[in-house]
Design a protein around this nucleic acid. Structure first.
Length: 494
RNA sequence: GCCAAGGUGGCAGAGUCCGGCCGAACGCAGCGGCCUGCAGAGCCGCCCAUCGCCGGUUCAAAUCCGGCCCUUGGCUCCA
C-alpha cells in the first residue's frame, strides 16, 4: 500500500515518491523565537512528528530538519524586557530554550538538525550573491531585492499572478524596488520590515534610524537578512537542492513559501521541494490563534493543564490539513478519547499478566478486530495521513478488547498480546502516545501504598462497612487516585 | 478587490481526489438496559442528518459540473 499526500503545489493528491526512500528529506518551517510557543505551533509540530513517525514506521529513512529563526526585529524589539536579556541574541536564546523544552514535553521525535539563522549568515550571503550574479536579484541603496519578473514561475504555489499584483500598485521610478512584489533578500542597516511595508504601500522612504538588532557585513554593506532567504539557505545547506517534503502552516503559503521557491529554484535551477504540505490553522473563537492577536494558549501551559497525551489526542482528532478549533470542550473530549484508549490498553495488559501463555481460549472476534485495526490504521495513514480515521481504528480496538474481557472469564492470551502490541506500536510508536510507559519516580512506592489502602477497604467492604469503604475511596479520589471495583477485585489509576 | 481552504447530526469531525458498500465512521453529550452494595469503568441498544442554497449530469451524488450565499485564512509579522 502506498502513501499519497495532498500537494499544495498542484492542489492534488499525489502518490508519494521520494528521491531516495532510505533518505526522505523533511523540512519543517520552524518558528521565530520572539515569544513562547503556543498551541498553534504545537499543532504543526505534532502533525509533522506523526508524519515523520509514520514514514519511519513504514520503513523509510527520514532526515528531518527544522529551523529556528533567531534573527528578527520582533526579537530585537524585546531586548531589555525584564528577564529576557539585553540583546537580540539573548532574547532568542531565552525563547529557544523554552521552545526546546516544549518540544520535549510534547514527545516529538528529535530532528536531525535545528539550524539557526544567526549561524547561517555566510550561506545566506552566498545564496544572495548567486542570485545577483544570475540576474534574479539587484542591489538598491544597500539592500538587495529579488526580482519577481525574472522568475516566470513566481506564484505557482499560491496561484498568485504578478500582473494582478502590479495592477494594485504601479511601479514607480523613485521606488527602491523595481516591482511592487519584489521582496527583500538583504536589508541595509537601519531598514526595518515595518518601513519596508510602508514603502511597498505608498513609496515612503525606506530608511529609518531605529536600532533593529545585530547587523552583519556583506558585499552590500552592513545589514540583516530578509525574512524568506533563511529557509532556502538552511534547507539547501542541510538537505540539498531538492527536498522531499516541506511542511508549514497554511498562513505561510504566501508570501513566505512562494518566495522560498523563487529564491531557491532561481539559484539552483532545481525543483526546491517535491511535496508541499500545509497544516490548517488552530482557531479560538473563530479567529486564528496567533502571537500577534494575543489570543494564544502556551504549549507549556497546555502540557501542564492537560498532559501530553491529551494534547496529542486533541491534534490527532482532525486531519492535518483542516483547521481546528481550540476550546475547553474540545480538550475535554480529547481527554475522554485518550482515557478510553488508555483504559482499554491497561485492561488488556492487566489480563495478559493474569492469563497463561498456553491458554486454550481463542476469541476469533478479538483477533479479527486486531487484524482489522492494523489494516484500517495503515489504510488511513497512507491516505494523506488521515489521523482521524487511524484514531477511529484504534478506538475500535479498544471496544474490541473491552468486549472480549466482558464476555469471557478466561482470556485469549495471544489475542490480548496482539492487542497490547498493536496499541504500543500504532498508538505508541506512530502516534507518540504513552502506552506502557511508567511515569517513573516513586511510582512503585505509591502503588504499594494505594494497594495497602485498597486491601483495608476490601476488608471493610467484606464486613459490610460501606460507609467506611466509600470514605476511603473518596479520599483516594481526592488525591487523584481513581478506584474501580471489578470482578477481579479493585483496580486503580492516577 | 484578488488568491486559497471550508460549509455534514446537540457538539465535534471523517467521508468528497476514484459517484453506488453513506439509510453517512470514531468520539463527546443525552436516553434506556445489563453489570455493581453504591459509584465509576465497561457492554448492549436508542436518539439527533432534507450532507449551505439553487439548478444540471447520471440508472445512481455528501461525492461530478455551473451559479449564488456565508465562514476562515493569505495578499503586512505569523505555524
Amino acid at each position: 500500500m502506498t502513501l499519497s499526500v495532498t500537494n499544495t503545489l498542484t492542489g492534488e493528491r499525489e502518490e508519494f515518491e521520494p528521491g531516495d526512500p532510505d533518505d526522505v528529506l523533511l523540512y519543517v518551517c520552524g518558528l521565530t523565537v520572539s515569544d513562547d510557543a503556543h498551541l498553534g505551533h504545537a499543532r504543526v509540530w505534532t502533525h509533522s512528528d506523526v508524519m515523520h513517525r509514520w514514514l519511519a514506521h513504514e520503513g523509510y529513512g527520514v532526515r528531518h530538519v527544522e529551523n529556528f529563526t533567531d534573527v528578527n526585529e520582533k526579537i530585537a524589539a524585546r531586548a531589555g524586557e525584564e528577564g529576557l536579556g539585553d540583546t537580540e541574541e539573548e532574547v532568542a536564546e531565552q525563547f529557544m530554550s523554552s521552545v526546546i523544552e516544549d518540544m520535549r514535553g510534547l514527545n516529538l521525535l528529535r530532528a536531525e538538525v535545528y539550524p539557526r539563522v544567526s549561524e547561517h549568515v555566510p550561506e545566506i550571503i552566498d545564496l544572495i550573491e548567486t542570485l545577483v550574479e544570475k540576474g534574479y536579484a539587484y542591489e538598491s541603496n544597500g539592500s538587495v531585492y529579488f526580482d519577481v519578473t525574472e522568475f516566470p514561475d513566481y506564484g505557482k504555489l499560491s496561484n498568485q499572478n504578478i500582473d494582478e499584483m502590479e495592477a494594485q500598485g504601479e511601479a514607480d521610478e523613485r521606488s527602491e524596488k523595481r516591482h511592487p512584489a519584489d521582496f527583500a533578500l538583504w536589508k541595509a542597516d537601519g531598514v526595518s520590515d515595518a518601513a519596508l511595508a510602508e514603502h511597498r504601500k505608498d513609496d515612503r522612504p525606506v530608511d529609518d534610524d531605529a536600532d533593529h538588532g545585530e547587523t552583519w557585513d556583506s558585499p552590500w554593506g552592513d545589514g540583516r537578512p530578509g525574512w524568506h532567504i533563511e529557509c532556502s539557505a538552511m534547507s539547501i545547506t542541510h538537505l540539498g537542492e531538492t527536498l522531499d517534503i516541506h511542511v508549514g502552516g497554511h498562513d505561510l503559503v504566501f508570501p513566505h513559501h512562494e518566495n522560498e521557491i523563487a529564491q531557491s529554484e532561481a539559484a539552483t535551477g532545481q525543483q526546491f521541494a517535491r511535496y508541499w504540505l500545509h497544516t490548517g490553522l488552530l482557531e479560538t473563537k473563530g479567529e486564528k490563534m496567533s502571537s500577534s492577536l494575543g489570543n494564544f494558549f502556551t504549549v507549556s501551559g497546555a502540557l501542564e493543564e492537560f498532559g501530553v497525551d491529551v494534547v496529542r489526542t486533541f491534534y490527532l482528532s482532525t486531519g492535518y490539513g483542516s483547521k481546528q478549533t481550540f476550546s475547553e470542550e474540545a480538550m475535554a473530549e480529547a481527554e475522554e478519547r485518550w482515557e478510553r484508549l488508555e483504559r482499554a490498553y491497561e485492561t488488556a495488559s492487566d489480563r495478559l499478566d493474569s492469563t497463561e501463555a498456553r491458554t486454550k481460549v481463542e476469541d476469533e472476534e478479538l483477533r479479527a478486530t486486531v487484524a482489522e485495526t492494523r489494516k484500517e490504521f495503515t489504510r488511513a495513514m497512507n491516505d494523506d495521513f488521515n489521523v482521524r480515521e487511524a484514531m477511529a481504528a484504534l478506538l475500535e480496538l479498544a471496544a474490541g478488547v473491552n468486549r472480549h474481557v466482558d464476555a469471557h472469564d478466561e482470556y485469549d492470551y495471544r489475542g490480548l498480546r496482539e492487542a497490547v502490541e498493536t496499541f504500543e506500536d500504532l498508538g505508541g510508536s506512530v502516534f507518540g502516545l504513552s502506552f506502557g510507559e511508567e511515569a517513573g519516580g516513586d511510582v512503585s512506592l505509591a502503588d504499594d501504598v494505594v494497594e495497602l489502602v485498597l486491601e483495608l477497604r476490601e476488608s471493610e467492604r467484606e464486613a459490610g462497612n460501606y460507609e467506611r469503604a466509600d470514605d476511603l475511596r473518596d479520599r483516594l479520589e481526592a488525591m487523584g487516585v481513581e478506584v474501580q471495583d471489578g470482578d477481579d477485585g479493585p483496580t486503580f489509576r492516577y
